[in-house]
Design a protein around this nucleic acid. Structure first.
Lengths: 270, 270
DNA sequence: GTCCACCCTCCCCCCGGGGGAGGGTCCAGC
DNA sequence: GCTGGACCCTCCCCCGGGGGGAGGGTGGAC
């Protein structure tokens, strides 16, 4: 493919359907360098060879691939690596799609008139030592991290003495990063890989149970929060979830049951 | 639901999983006003009644509903109107999804090694008077506009003398808005509703044919562009598409054939 | 009375562009 | 050779939906 003629930025723009402005930005970002730049006038020149490259960029941007990542994709001339990077992004899009669907479901439920009164129990929980995996995670990764950690726990704790659970720091929700811990109770916790014995402190918990998928678990959180405040309590410490019935127990999401426990303490009544 | 206690912004933040920062922003945006604000200290106070509202906002934001639209949704207390607004946004998400899928398909094709050499014909087209619908449209609306205009054309032109086509101004691709015109050739063009007789000027066209869905029509555009430049021609005027075989002819997308014609003129060879 | 967590406002940063100002350059027609 | 207009350049500000952090005021538990 010989470049019979060099193109001005305007011509190149018309041929690629990328705006002149955007082409200049891509140049500045080191993403699509013009074939040459006149030192005196600063005029950019493009070659026809660059049309397919520009189209790849166009497509990747349509998929909301960040410019920086487009750059790395283009810099890689190994087609396998390139395909992998693209596939990674496609996976991200898939999970984004799943998130969107979950939000839609939950929104529908939220807009329905509020039916069920919340059923909350105040429960004193003693300190207990469990087998746990803990880490600082970001909110986006927490699901994947949870799956891995729970698999490791299952391998390390052949005979659990109760349903698994998790503790989630508030910062995880507030700032997208925070401490998370998943555990299985067992009589003989030991250290295996990432699994360590951890003693969960005694707390007083306001406990309610969420039934069904986790898509709209925030609704249950909200009801629990209202109850806590109405009963002149305040929240202190990470939330505790206990997975009474989950995907490991039954494939039917409507049968899942998750206990949510919020550590509370009594507020002086004014 | 009585508000037993007022909450500080921090407490409200923990109960709703919205960051303090975000709550302040929502206040500034007139989206989620605190129950009261202390005139002296500026401290915001929230009521437990606002927890469900905050959750609705949270969900809508997860769906990327702009703050301004969230505000209108909340201001409307008619549940039907509210449901309609939400449904509108869901439709937008759906089309976004379709766009993403199309981009994925096209990207896959683009990353494959370039197989087919392009088959371009240079063709002198005489001026012709057709029945046409024209408008300034935005790129996002062009598909919907096209469908409506073509339906109106079909009604107004019972006996067309050839396949339908369209002319698309370059600004439409460059800046998201521009002039578009769809037409059906006929022996007796008349004015009916939005349909008017229009004389398309004589041009010299570089013509190639795109086969299949329009998802990756830009690839064909790119090949055509390369050919045009390689043959020392330049582009002048709106692109012309002719829908030889389309959805109206067969439901099988792989059989669709779209002729793309780019008005060109010869460039002086240096 | 002191400490510390909490709250306030204000300003700058991120991304991927668009809009526009203000000025230089190229080329066709006269 | 001159002029007009299309084209090109850089630079700065704008958008939305927040995050990070500075600098300072408040409230309540000890």
């Amino acid at each position: 493919m010989d470049d019979g003629r060099v193109l001005t930025i305007g011509e190149f723009s018309r041929l690629t359907h990328l705006s002149v402005r955007t082409l200049r930005r891509y140049h500045d970002a080191g993403l699509l360098e013009p074939a040459s730049v006149d030192d005196v006038t600063g005029y950019r020149s493009y070659s026809t060879d660059q049309i397919p490259v520009a189209q790849v960029v166009h497509r990747l941007r349509e998929l909301d691939v960040p410019l920086a990542e487009v750059r790395t994709i283009l810099r890689t001339d190994d087609p396998d690596t390139r395909a992998r990077l693209v596939a990674d992004h496609l996976r991200r899009l898939e999970s984004e799609l799943a998130r969107t669907r979950a939000a839609v479901v939950s929104l529908r439920r939220l807009l329905e008139p509020d039916p069920a009164p919340v059923d909350v129990e105040l429960r004193a929980v003693p300190a207990v030592t469990v087998a746990a995996v803990a880490a600082d995670v970001s909110h986006d990764d927490v699901l994947a991290w949870y799956a891995g950690a729970m698999a490791e726990l299952d391998a390390a704790v052949p005979v659990p003495s109760g349903p698994p659970g998790g503790l989630y720091d508030d910062a995880l929700f507030q700032h997208g990063r925070g401490h998370a811990l998943v555990y299985r109770p067992t009589d003989r916790p030991a250290t295996v890989g990432r699994v360590h014995p951890v003693t969960l402190p005694a707390v007083e918990l306001a406990v309610t149970t969420h039934t069904g998928e986790h898509d709209d678990i925030d609704v249950t959180y909200g009801r629990l929060g209202s109850w806590v405040v109405a009963n002149t309590l305040a929240v202190a410490g990470p939330v505790r979830e206990t997975y009474l019935v989950g995907p490991r127990d039954t494939p039917d999401p409507s049968a899942w049951r998750t206990e949510i426990g919020w550590p509370v303490f009594r507020v002086a009544v004014p």
